[in-house]
Amino acid sequence: MEVKILDILGQTCPSCLLIALKEINLNYEKLRKGELKIVIKTDHRDATRTIPEAAKAMGYEVEVEKIHTYYEITIFKINKRR
């Protein structure tokens, strides 16, 4: 699976969310097909709430991991073809 890293270290809300959403929108096709995952690096704590909430509402899986001084929010989609 292709991985796209989005570094928004230093950014705060709400731009964090908007930048993340923009990235998701841009890569909508690949994400939906499960061909890509986006890893967002942020040091803004509030973003670890807003981004996952929004991404989950859009139907994505989200994993949040704390790495040293920042967070990594991974957004991807598991294709559950029925």
């Binding site: 908007l18 959403l21 923009k22 998701i24 929108n25 909508y28 929004a54 509402a57 859009m58 139907g59």
Partner: peptide, 21 residues
């Protein structure tokens, strides 16, 4: 930056997700 567009796009995805759901 077009935040309304971004959010609208996000909403369309949310809607799609809801429809799927």
């Amino acid at each position: 930056f077009d935040p309304i567009g971004i959010i609208a796009e996000a909403f369309s995805q949310i809607l799609e997700h809801m429809r799927e759901t």
